[in-house]
Amino acid sequence: MKTHLALLRGINVSGHNMIKMEALKTTLEAVGFQNVQTYIQSGNVFVDTEEENPAAVGFKIKQEIFKAFGHEVPIVVIGKSDLEACFKNNPFLKEKDLDIKKLYVAFISTTLKSESINDLKMSQVKPDDASIDGTKIYIKYAVGAGKTRFDQKYIEKKLNVTATIRNWNTVTQLLQLYEER
């Protein structure tokens, strides 16, 4: 059995794509996922399965969500090592006087090259800052996530990828949950 973490994008936001986590858990268990565990209403779902391929797991979850709830939900599936890398490779964690509340991670559907940072045209979203690390973009917002153009839609448009963003507190909690499994 392998544990996967599915990060669902855009559910239960401002009354759109509403999915109760208990109903999602029941739906995923009904199609064979085991040890299904959700974390907060924004769509973080741990599943155990024999399937090794994260993309296949994401595709199956996406299909089941559409069948059960009628929502087309983009999903990025990550492993424990992806979360561990956030703590090891996030360059903003080295900064003195860092406000953790302004630190986020965008999880990306495909591996990015370091030169992809040029495609983000960061000068258009300054003073926000970002750093690319494979399938993650570490983000440090100057003011906050609610007052920026540098959001998931911006990232997806500039890089032609699927992206979903989590704040640093959620990333920390998800790693802790992974370790408890």
Rank of each mutant, 00 (worst) to 15 (best):
M1Q: 11
L5C: 04
G10W: 02
G10T: 06
I11M: 07
N12Y: 04
V13E: 01
V13D: 02
G15S: 06
G15F: 08
H16Q: 15
E22P: 06
L28M: 11
L28H: 09
A30N: 15
V31M: 10
V31D: 06
Q34K: 15
N35S: 14
N35P: 08
Q37K: 15
T38V: 02
N44G: 03
V47E: 01
D48N: 15
D48G: 03
E50S: 12
E50W: 11
E52P: 00
N53I: 03
P54L: 12
K62G: 08
K62M: 11
E64W: 05
E72S: 12
V73W: 06
P74N: 08
I75Q: 08
I78G: 09
I78V: 15
L83W: 08
A85D: 14
F92W: 11
E95P: 01
I100E: 12
K101R: 14
Y104D: 10
A106G: 15
A106T: 11
F107S: 06
I108C: 00
S114N: 11
E115Y: 15
L120P: 13
M122S: 06
V125T: 08
V125K: 04
D133E: 12
T135C: 10
T135M: 12
K136W: 01
K136M: 08
I137E: 07
Y138A: 05
I139Y: 05
V143Q: 14
F150Q: 09
F150C: 11
K153T: 15
E156K: 12
K158F: 00
K158H: 14
L159T: 01
V161Y: 12
I165P: 04
W168T: 06
N169W: 00
T170Q: 01
Q176R: 14
Y178P: 03
